[in-house]
Simulated scan of single mutants.
Amino acid sequence: MSSNAPDYDLDETVELTTSEQVRAISDPLRTTILGLLHERAATVSELATAVKRPKSTVAHHVSVLAKAGLLRVVRTRKVRAIDERYYGRSARMFYVGLGHQEGGGSLPPDFNDFETAARESAAAHSLGQLRQFIRRARIAEAQADEFWERIEQVVHEFDRLPRSGEKVHGFAVGMYPIPDYPTLPPENRVEG
Rank of each mutant, 00 (worst) to 15 (best):
K52I: 09
L130S: 06
R23Q: 12
S121F: 00
K78E: 15
I139F: 04
T18Q: 04
L10S: 08
G192S: 13
A117R: 03
D110N: 11
V96M: 03
A5R: 12
P28C: 03
V96C: 06
E141Y: 10
S63M: 02
E20S: 15
F94E: 04
A48T: 02
P182Y: 11
G170Y: 00
R163P: 05
V168T: 13
V190W: 08
Q153H: 06
F171T: 00
D113R: 12
E102Q: 12
E157H: 13
P54L: 01
R53S: 09
P109I: 09
D110Y: 05
N112M: 03
F158G: 00
V79K: 13
Q132P: 02
S26I: 07
G174C: 00
E15A: 14
D9F: 05
W148E: 11
I139A: 04
G104V: 04
Q21P: 02
R138L: 13
Q21Y: 00
L65R: 00
F111Q: 05
L161A: 09
A144K: 14
A142Q: 14
E39W: 09
L36H: 10
S90E: 11
E12Y: 07
E141M: 10
V74L: 04
P162G: 02
R160V: 01
T183Y: 07
G170T: 00
E15G: 05
H60C: 07
N4P: 07
D110T: 09
E149Y: 06
I151R: 09
V154Q: 11
V154Y: 11
Q21F: 04
A91S: 09
D11L: 13
D11Q: 15
R80S: 13
V51H: 05
L29A: 14
H100Q: 10
A124Y: 06
E102S: 09
G128R: 02
L10K: 03
I151D: 01
H156T: 09
I178C: 13
R119I: 10
A24L: 00
D180R: 03
P182V: 04
S19P: 07
K55H: 13
E84K: 08
M175F: 09
H169I: 07
A172Y: 10
D110E: 08
Q143W: 00
M93W: 11
E146K: 10
E141I: 07
D110L: 05
M1C: 10
R163D: 10
R163Q: 11
G105V: 08
E120V: 01
R80E: 15
A66V: 01
A123V: 08
N112D: 15
V190T: 12
A41D: 14
H61V: 06
S90P: 01
R136W: 02
Y181P: 04
S121Q: 01
V190I: 14
A48D: 08
T18D: 03
G165V: 01
R150W: 01
G105K: 04
G174A: 12
A117H: 03
Q153E: 15
I82Q: 15
Q132L: 13
G35M: 04
T31F: 04
A41Q: 03
E191I: 12
R40K: 15
E120R: 08
G35F: 06
E84Y: 06
V62P: 05
A5G: 04
T57Q: 08
R150F: 01
